[in-house]
């Protein structure tokens, strides 16, 4: 299963819409071994195509080194299909080179709704997995402490009179 924050999903969809009808692509990095996508890195589609995407090789080197230096890995590799469903094509399967990554596909073929699906691609075998979008709410079971004047959703910069 892919668990990913709503804010990251929104940004990926915005990227896909911006580049439509060309395919958009990018990475969400996270701490190595955590399986947690945290840092969104939209990449250029060097192919600038409606049916094909390819990371720019120099940009990829820079981004992969940066991840290495930060002890991160590509947790999610995303791209959009702009006229077909969000299912990996034979091309996607052939070129999938990161067995540990979630391959997230966004279809922007409908103008006002997006199809979002995630896959593992290992040794040429595609396995779909559920996507859990984590809404930005406070986990009621987490141990929390708040500083004076703050609540989980608001910060009071001034104390109200009479409190």
């Amino acid at each position: 299963m892919l668990s990913i924050d709503r804010s990251i999903i929104d940004a990926i969809i915005a990227h896909a819409r911006r580049d439509h009808p060309d395919e958009a692509c990018g990475v969400v990095a996270g701490p190595a071994g955590s399986d947690k996508p945290v840092r969104l890195i939209p990449m250029d589609n060097a192919a600038r195509s409606m049916t094909f995407y390819e990371f720019d090789s120099m940009e990829q080197l820079r981004v992969w080194r940066e991840m290495d230096d930060n002890d991160e890995e590509p947790v999610v590799i995303y791209h959009s299909h702009t006229a077909t469903e969000a299912y990996p094509s034979r091309t996607d399967v052939s070129f999938a080179g990161e067995p540990g990554a979630h391959y997230l596909l966004v279809s922007t073929r409908e103008p006002d709704s997006e199809e979002l699906r995630s896959y593992r691609i290992v040794d040429g075998v595609v396995t779909e997995e559920p996507v859990r979008i984590v809404e930005p709410t406070v986990d009621p079971h987490a141990v929390q402490s708040y500083m004076f004047g703050q609540s989980p959703t608001t910060v009071d910069y001034e104390c109200s009179p009479g409190r």
Binding site: M50, E54, F55, Q60, F95
Partner: peptide, 14 residues
């Protein structure tokens, strides 16, 4: 020397 798998794909038939 650094080796990276190119990241590529897309809707088009391979």
């Amino acid at each position: 020397v650094t080796i990276l798998p190119a990241v590529a794909g897309g809707a088009f038939g391979f």
